[in-house]
Every structure is written in C-alpha cells, then in structure tokens.
Design a binder for these strands. Structure first.
Length: 206
DNA sequence: CGGGCGATACCCT
DNA sequence: GGGTATCGCCCGA
C-alpha cells in the first residue's frame, strides 16, 4: 500500500511549483491557460480564461492603493490563493504572483468530479455554465473565504494547479478585462481560442 | 446566445 | 456612504 496522503483522489499531472508563480502576473497568466485547477475531493477543471492584475500600475487591482486587511494575501508568498468576496454574494479566486500581483481565474472547462460541481451549483443547469465565470467556478469547486491564503504548492491545503502536459495555446486570444470601470484598456485578459467554456467576449483581432 | 436589470454585504474613503 | 475583478433570471432571436 502506498503511503496515505490527504489527496483522496489521484490528481492528473504534476503540481506546478513555486518559481512558476514568482514572476509578473502578465507572464504567469497566459501560461496558466490549459493547466488544471484541482481540489482534494477530485473536482478539477482546465483553466481556459484568466486575467492579470498588477497593483503598481493598475487602478482596477485591489492592491493598487497598497496593502489592506482584505488584500494582505496578495502581498505574501507567490503560489498562494487570494480569495475575495464581491457584490455581496460571490467569491473569486486568484493565484498570487510576485508581490502585489495576481491572476484571476475566470473560467474552467469541467474535467473531473462534475457530479460534485452540479451538487454545489444546481442540478438543472447546463454543463457549460458550471464554471463559466470567476464566481461560478469557485462555487463549483467549493472555494470560499475559508481558502483565502492557502498554499497551492505542496498539495497540503487541498487545492493545486496541475500540469498534465497540455501546453498553453500557441495563438493567444486576448480581450478587455471584464467587470471593471477603470483600466479596461489594459489588455490583460487571455483565453483559450474557440473554447465554449470562456465567460466573456474576445477581442476582435487579438 | 446575448443583453438588461436587481440583488447583496463588505471594503475603503 | 459609495462603489464593487458578478450572477441568475428574463426577454428576444
């Protein structure tokens, strides 16, 4: 018998390690495409849409005006998860990169544990809508404020980013970021081309 | 499948 | 006190 781990289900691929995250979020974000967000209970989805946030120059970033109690995790070690509460009812999840920068995960293509995702969302809904949107995917994956600050590296805290060998898309599809009023012109949103699980419109021409 | 609209509580000024 | 890194529901195509 192999030694018992906290992972109740075998994860596909290898856990992405810390140096991957210790870079500018605009470098990390496109390379997160086609990687996998996985939970210890077997729920997992392929990352098909991301957004970079750069505190130092980005008025839309939570970290733009410096450290506060809410955004403290974003000023901590790379490779941790920053989970914030918004619009009075939704949780959104980010990967922390270099200090003050992070990548918002905006959409997943469901891969494993789809029955648990339906249970967490709603049994009648379309599979396409399970994880299409940053707050939908946290609900589907079981991510809340309880996960704010957990380490995505080391497989200790129940969630990880996995690499199963699928590379990021060759031709990146970009577009304006969504749901913000300032900094909309910064082209820091990326998605997998022609993927039906992407949450928003893609820009014409790149 | 895309657009318009109300709901909701926490954060920061 | 104002604004929010959103969603589900409804409508029409």
């Amino acid at each position: 018998m192999p030694k018992r781990s906290r992972r109740s289900v075998a994860w596909p691929g290898t856990v992405v390690s810390r140096p991957f995250f210790e870079r500018p979020s605009t470098d990390v974000a496109p390379q997160l495409l086609n990687k996998i967000l996985a939970g210890a209970d077997g729920r997992a989805g392929r990352i098909v849409e991301v957004e970079a946030y750069v505190g130092s120059m980005d008025p839309a970033a939570h970290t733009y005006r410096g450290q506060t109690p809410r955004n403290a995790v974003m000023f901590g070690p790379a490779g941790h998860m920053y989970v914030y509460f918004t619009y009075g009812m939704h949780w959104c999840s980010n990967c922390v990169c270099q200090v003050g920068e992070g990548v918002l995960i905006r959409a997943l293509e469901p891969l494993h544990g789809v029955d648990l995702m339906y249970e967490a969302r709603s049994w009648g809904m379309k599979e396409r809508d399970l994880c299409r949107g940053p707050a939908r995917l946290t609900q589907a994956m079981g991510i809340t404020g309880a996960q704010n600050g957990i380490d995505l590296v080391g497989a200790r805290d129940g969630f990880a980013i996995l690499d199963d060998g699928m590379p990021p898309p060759k031709a990146l599809v970009g577009g304006p970021r969504i749901g913000i009023r300032v900094g909309v012109d910064l082209p820091w949103r990326w998605s997998v081309p022609d993927n039906r699980y992407v949450s928003g419109p893609v820009a014409r021409g790149a």
